[in-house]
């Protein structure tokens, strides 16, 4: 008994880097299923991309579309906690930031916080942000007048020691 156990254990330990767990499943079966899963991911991603375009065209046509994006200034150590946006006095977006979201923004990711429809012309944007800069809490507010033209209106709200609005 002892010999058997020792032989099995020894073989198991030495072969660990070269073998895998199959638990009764053949390698081909596992591979085949994995490929099918990848295939369905591809299909669903294609549907998702088409749906996004359809949604944009249907719900937010370029003539009336306005999208607000939030980013964190490069090199700043600003950490947003929460944000609220009013468009023409009406609250259209509010968001409380998670650690992951803050991290993503500090690395250059941009959050789309609002997409909606407005008429052409001037519109008032009120932005309030609570956050931390160099460890101390800060509350910032700013007002901006956006001018909606024929094409989609993209506005970037860049957070840092001050709020900077960039009309794209």
């Amino acid at each position: 008994m002892m010999k058997k156990i020792i032989t099995v254990c020894s073989a198991l330990i030495l072969l660990t880097p070269l073998t895998c767990w199959s638990a009764g499943m053949s390698r081909e079966q596992i591979k085949g299923l994995d490929e099918q899963v990848q295939e369905i991911k591809k299909d669903v991603l294609a549907i998702s991309a088409e749906l996004q375009l359809l949604e944009e065209k249907l719900l937010y046509p370029s003539t009336s579309q306005v999208s607000l994006f939030v980013s964190v200034a490069k090199g700043s150590n600003y950490i947003p906690d929460a944000m609220q946006i009013k468009l023409n006095g009406k609250k259209v977006a509010h968001h409380i930031y998670s650690f992951k979201e803050v991290n993503a923004m500090s690395r250059g990711g941009v959050q789309r916080i609002y997409t909606g429809n407005i008429r052409g012309g001037e519109h008032r944007l009120d932005i309030s942000v609570i956050g931390k800069s160099s460890g101390s809490k800060s509350k910032q507010q700013t007002t901006y007048t956006l001018n909606k033209g024929v094409g989609p209106k993209l506005v970037e709200i860049n957070l840092g020691t001050a709020i900077t609005i960039k009309d794209r």
Binding site: F69, K100, A104, R107, G109, Q111, R112, R168
Partner: peptide, 17 residues
């Protein structure tokens, strides 16, 4: 270089895995 907001939005999701 002008930032592409939609590409950056994609990165925002990628950085959150």
């Amino acid at each position: 270089v002008k930032k592409d907001l939609f590409f950056s939005e994609g990165l925002y999701y990628a950085y959150q895995e």
